[in-house]
Amino acid sequence: MLNSETANVRLTMAGVVRGVKSLGPISLFVIPFGIAFGAAAIERGVTPDQSIVMSLTVFSAAAQFAALDFWNGPLPAISLLLTVLAVGTRHILMGATLAPWLNRLSRPKRLLALSVLSDANFADSYDAFRRDERDVGRLVGGGLALCICWIIGSTIGVIAGASLGNLGRFGIDVVMVSFFAAIAVGQWEGLSDVLPSVVAAAVAVLGLIFLPPGWNIVLAALAGGIAGVLWHER
């Protein structure tokens, strides 16, 4: 990473606005996921208040859906928290990936900005930082848009989830995977991406069989990273 690519990094309201604008349309698609979570939480015996507080403070679809599987046992279960850690581990990798830019900020600003780190605003802001964006507000704005939609969706789901039926008929179920596929294509730089991608895909798919939920993505990302280093130094 050249110094010039990470110099002059800042966190401003203008950046936040750009983040909201960039991820706003995609964020709207988070609402149906929130509805699905709210409805599922009620079904599992989580109270409406608890469900909404969970969406507000945890703000992670993967962690929250995973937690529901444990909800009827004794709480707080170690296995529940380990699962939340496992599905959250990819945040560590995303944070490390954004570190060349984030670590130019003061620690308090960084710790605040990272509180809304999620898959979609990571993808959006990493892409933007790689071009000419230098404002971490981009990450924060995208995260706020996602978080607000997640809470709106969860609230609707808690109140009315059971009566809305299957949202898949509108194609909403493919929004997130389509978004990640699009970002992967957008990031594609050429030959140097081939080996990491093939390794990551293979490990992710094989990991589905052998690993607890979430760990396959973590292992695939690390394996892809190592493959990238090997290619770099061949």
Partner: peptide, 8 residues
């Protein structure tokens, strides 16, 4: 490489 690997 890790960034594109997460998406893939």
């Amino acid at each position: 490489s890790m960034a594109i690997s997460v998406m893939v």
